[in-house]
């Protein structure tokens, strides 16, 4: 499979994830969409790593794994707290930080 096809898959996944962040109300779905975007980036890294026969891209993916794991752990903790506060996880409810 040529590199550009793999990259197109990665871009499509990224854009679908971005669309999820933009259009969905549920904060858990928003968080999962961000995970999907991270996965798209991972796919691009692995593709390039294979193309250039170089492990650096795979090390980068491992770093992203760590960041994603921490992000989900903290994000879920925050979501649980938010739910305790307002009994809802809709983005419309949480907009007190407006300018």
């Amino acid at each position: 499979m040529p590199l550009d096809h793999l990259l197109i898959v990665a871009f499509v996944l990224f854009v679908v994830g971005a669309a999820g962040v933009m259009v969905r109300r549920n904060l858990i779905v928003v968080l999962m969409s961000i995970e999907l975007m991270l996965n798209a980036v991972n796919l691009a890294f692995v593709s390039f790593s294979r193309q250039m026969v170089d492990h650096d891209g795979q090390v980068m993916v491992l770093m992203i794994f760590v960041v994603a794991a921490v992000e989900v752990a903290i994000g879920m903790a925050i979501l649980v707290n938010m739910y305790r506060q307002k009994r809802s996880l809709s983005v419309d409810v949480f907009h007190s930080m407006r300018g």
């Binding site: 971005a18 962040v21 933009m22 109300r25 928003v30 983005v91 419309d92 949480f94 930080m97 300018g99």
Partner: peptide, 18 residues
């Protein structure tokens, strides 16, 4: 003036970033 763009809606922020 510009503070009005910061409407506290996460989805709008994402749109602006895109």
């Amino acid at each position: 003036k510009m503070g009005r763009a910061q409407d506290g809606d996460v989805g709008n922020y994402a749109t602006i970033m895109v």
